[in-house]
Design a protein around this nucleic acid. Structure first.
Lengths: 341, 341
DNA sequence: CTGAAAGCGCTAACAA
DNA sequence: TTGTTAGCGCTTTCAG
């Protein structure tokens, strides 16, 4: 913080021979201040390079104009694009955004929340880490009386505003596409099912199999953290089966990438022997060979809507209102890894 | 900010029948407070879920315990890994880190700096955007009396603490390797040379060519923003030459990727016809086919050192000290895109 | 239209 | 060992 003393409202007042309160009012364009004074104040403020002390303003107003964002991983293109759009929307409204990442760790998530609450953010926009099952730290946010908005990964136990895509439908699109490629034994590498989106994708997967008269085989349904490592492990496991799958639908692109690597290492042709579909449309899916079919989640939209939900909640400061759930339509992006024809 | 009134130091004082100042001192473990009082205060503080109001503390102390970080792009693995390590180091010291991204835009960089100064961060750790030539906004930071630390991309005009790798040497490693693959016409897709690191890489490139008795050909030296798009453009341009290069050294992995795409689209064999080297060791360089040879910049180290530089400067609050420059050794990672043997 | 004064929550001299 | 007091910079009633 400044060594060189910043000019304060008082300095301006002294220069102009008026009181600090008059300066404050002039600066905030109070109606009962003469135009002449206002102009004088604004002018000397500029001349003296006056910048209001946000700390003081916040302390006084009980509002920091800071919004905290918690993402599981900032590297992921999906999340970073969401963050970008949250920032864009909130900056326009005069908020500054503080980005933190949990690295998929429950512990880091807790400390992030603590840090944000301590900084006195006006609200938190978050996506839950894979590692999180206990939700008490999220309840702290409510207890602080500030809004919480969730995106992508929510939890049914947490009744807060949220935005995400229709995961159930996503699975339907994937399975529909794979059956058209005449796949019959479709495996699913899923995320932890305590997280709603993964649960819904699993549900959609099972339901779609039924719809297309395919059997649901427990040995083909796996659950993990969807990292590249996890994808490798799960694919290796699937290859050990006496009856191998002829398609793999992974609930995340990184897991799909890991699976692809294992397949290629074992000289299994993709998609001819085993077709592959990922989730999230990370940029690398179009870079690898073969390119990976995946589901686009409209990250820009998600960020924007999350910001809007916060603004709405914050404006009304009506935390008791029933939560609003926004659900976007998924889009299947078909690439080489699943196109047999 | 809290609707439900948070407990303050005063509340605790009232409960215990002592004064706020006694509570304050007890909480900060002041030596001249009785152990009994301290215990009582700590206990009721916990019971009442007391959390100090950082705004008030900051206002009072003239120190926010916030450090701002500006990265050109948060998506890039290089930068996100640096940020991760800055966070890790500074959190340990009780600082919270605010991450902002300039998206390689001068304008956004300015507004980021303004935002950070307004939030009253205690220091800023930044890497310059490609788009930036004017440096007045950085001087504002000094004017605010807080330390500025630069990493990776610095500017010679800015005499501040900084950390990066030996770019000059990096180019030498690259050219040495390429000559060993018997490349004779090595093109360079460089970054804007007003940015020091790109200038140094260019210098290293030219110098190494001389060392290996290869001619410096201006038509093989290009300059741009090093995006994938830019890489495509520059590669296309190089292919139009009557005498094509037999190797391309790009100062960034994204540009290398763009170049690779163009090469493959034109059925040019990599590395047999044209060898390719990138810079930064982004994860995708090992994922594409052929995998891309690149330079590892030790991002973890850079983040950690940047944090240390800040702490040192901040501790001494001695902004006048001569700036410290930390230079790390680069490491060439040889992959398929340049291995001819 | 402008000024006086109180106070947001906390800390730190100085007193007692 | 504890209390008193002033004040960080700003906003906001309430008077004038």
């Amino acid at each position: 913080m400044a060594n060189k003393k910043n000019t304060t409202i008082k300095d301006i007042a002294n220069v102009l021979g008026i009181t600090p309160s008059a300066v404050s009012k002039a600066l905030s364009d109070h109606p009962r201040i003469s135009v002449k004074t206002k102009e004088a104040v604004r002018e000397t403020a500029k001349k003296m390079d006056y910048r209001p002390n946000r700390l003081a303003v916040s302390l006084r107003k009980g509002k920091s104009n800071l919004v905290g964002v918690i993402v599981p991983r900032a590297k992921s293109n999906f999340f970073s694009s969401i963050v970008e759009n949250i920032e864009k929307s909130l900056n326009q409204e005069g908020y500054n955004v503080i980005i933190t990442q949990s690295n998929e760790s429950y512990k880091k998530e807790c400390s992030n929340i603590d840090a944000l609450l301590q900084i006195q953010v006006d609200g938190i926009i978050a996506s839950i880490s894979n590692d999180t099952t206990d939700l008490n730290h999220y309840k702290k946010i409510e207890q602080n009386g500030i809004p919480l908005i969730m995106f992508d990964r929510g939890m049914k136990e947490l009744e807060v505003d949220s935005v995400g895509i229709n995961d159930y439908l996503s699975s339907h699109l994937v399975i529909e596409h794979l059956t058209k490629q005449s796949c019959k034994r479709i495996a699913h590498i899923g995320g932890y099912s305590h997280i709603r989106i993964y649960k819904n994708r699993l549900k959609g997967y099972k339901n779609a199999l039924k719809k297309y008269n395919l059997p649901i085989l427990e040995e083909l349904i796996l659950e993990g953290d969807l990292t590249k490592q996890d994808g490798r492990k799960k694919m290796t496991q699937l290859l050990k089966l006496t009856k191998r799958p002829d398609a793999v639908y992974a609930s995340g692109d990184y897991a799909a990438l890991g699976a692809l690597q294992v397949l290629l290492e074992n000289n299994i042709r993709v998609p001819e022997d085993i077709a592959l579909v990922g989730f999230s449309n990370e940029p690398f899916t179009s870079l690898v060979t073969p390119s990976i079919t995946t589901v686009n989640q409209h990250s820009e939209k998600i960020g924007q809507i999350a910001a809007e939900l916060f603004l709405k909640k914050n404006l009304k400061s009506d935390l008791e209102k029933a939560p609003e759930y926004v659900v976007l339509e998924p889009e299947l992006i078909i690439r080489e890894s699943s196109k047999r024809q």
